[in-house]
C-alpha cells in the first residue's frame, strides 16, 4: 500500500510572531521555520505503518516555495521514501492546496493520505477535509488511533465530547491529532541518506490546477492587549479581589 503524507513549512511553534508595522502581513524575517507539528505526526504514523509491513512506499508532498524542500528532506530523513514539491511562490489558500493535492493523488493513487489536522500558522483546519471532498474519499479527521486492515480502516477521533470511532473504506484521508503518536527524531545517518532520495518538483501549471484564491487578507494586527494584572500575596487577598473588585464569585 502506498501512503501519501503532506508536510507544510511553517513558523516554528516556539516563535511568537508579530505583524509587520504596516499591517500587510506577518513579519517572517529571520524566524525559525519547521515542519508543521501535526504533519510531523502524520509522517511518523506513515513510517510506523511501513514498519508494520502495511505500507510499502511513503511519498512526502509539500506545496510551497523552494525552501519547502528543507521540510521534505526532514520528512525523508524520518522515513519517507521520496518527495514531491509542488512549487509556488504564492501564498495559497486551503482550497487551492487541496486541488493541487488532488492532482497528485490522481497521479500517485495512494490508498491512504495522512495530513495534519491544522496548520499552526493559518489555523485553518480545512485542507484534509477539502481533499476528501474533492476525491470523494472517506475522512477520519482528528485521529487519535489508526488501524488499517484489508480495504478498511478504523479511526478513533478526538471530538468535543470525548472519543468517536468510525469504520472507513480505503482509499482514505486521515488528519492527525496530537495524541496519535509521538514523532521520533531523525538520526544523523538518516539525514545523510535523505539527501540522496528522489525529490521531484512540479508546478501548479504542470498539474493543470487553477490556484486563484477568493479570500483576500486586507490587514493583520496584534490582538487587543490585556491590561496588566497584579500579584496577590495570599489566598485571602485573592478571594477578596474576586468578590469585591472583579465581582466574579
Amino acid at each position: 500500500m502506498k501512503i501519501l503524507v503532506t508536510v507544510k513549512r511553517v513558523v516554528d511553534y516556539n516563535v511568537k510572531v508579530r505583524p509587520k508595522s504596516d499591517g500587510t502581513g506577518v513579519d517572517l524575517n529571520n524566524v525559525k521555520m519547521s515542519i508543521n507539528p501535526f504533519c510531523e505526526i502524520a509522517v511518523e504514523e506513515a513510517v510506523r505503518l511501513k514498519e508494520k509491513g502495511i505500507a510499502t512506499e511513503i511519498v512526502v508532498v509539500s506545496v510551497g516555495d523552494k525552501s519547502s524542500q528543507e521540510q521534505i528532506r526532514t520528512a525523508l530523513a524520518l522515513g519517507g521514501d521520496r518527495g514531491i514539491l509542488v512549487e509556488s511562490g504564492e501564498e495559497l489558500q486551503p482550497l487551492a492546496i487541496a486541488k493541487l493535492l488532488k492532482a497528485v493523488v490522481d497521479k500517485e493513487q495512494p490508498q491512504l493520505v495522512i495530513l495534519g489536522k491544522q496548520s499552526i500558522d493559518g489555523d485553518n483546519n480545512q485542507t484534509g477535509q477539502m481533499l476528501a471532498a474533492l476525491t470523494g474519499y472517506a475522512q477520519g479527521t482528528f485521529a487519535s488511533e489508526l488501524t488499517v486492515a484489508g480495504d478498511k480502516a478504523s479511526v478513533m477521533r478526538e471530538v468535543d465530547g470525548g472519543m468517536q470511532t468510525l469504520d472507513l473504506k480505503l482509499p482514505l484521508i486521515v488528519t492527525t491529532d496530537l495524541r496519535l503518536n509521538e514523532p521520533r527524531y531523525a538520526s544523523l545517518p538518516n539525514i545523510m541518506k535523505a539527501k540522496k532520495k528522489q525529490l521531484d518538483v512540479v508546478t501548479p501549471a504542470d498539474l493543470g490546477v487553477d490556484i486563484t484564491g477568493r479570500v483576500k487578507t486586507l490587514k493583520v494586527e496584534p490582538p487587543a492587549e490585556r491590561k496588566a494584572g497584579i500579584k496577590v500575596k495570599t489566598v485571602a487577598e485573592l478571594v477578596e479581589k474576586l468578590k469585591n473588585e472583579a465581582k466574579v464569585i
Partner: peptide, 12 residues
Amino acid sequence: IYAGNIIATVQS
C-alpha cells in the same frame, strides 16, 4: 491566526 497572536481581516 498564529494561535491568536495575529488577528487577520479577510475579505471574500
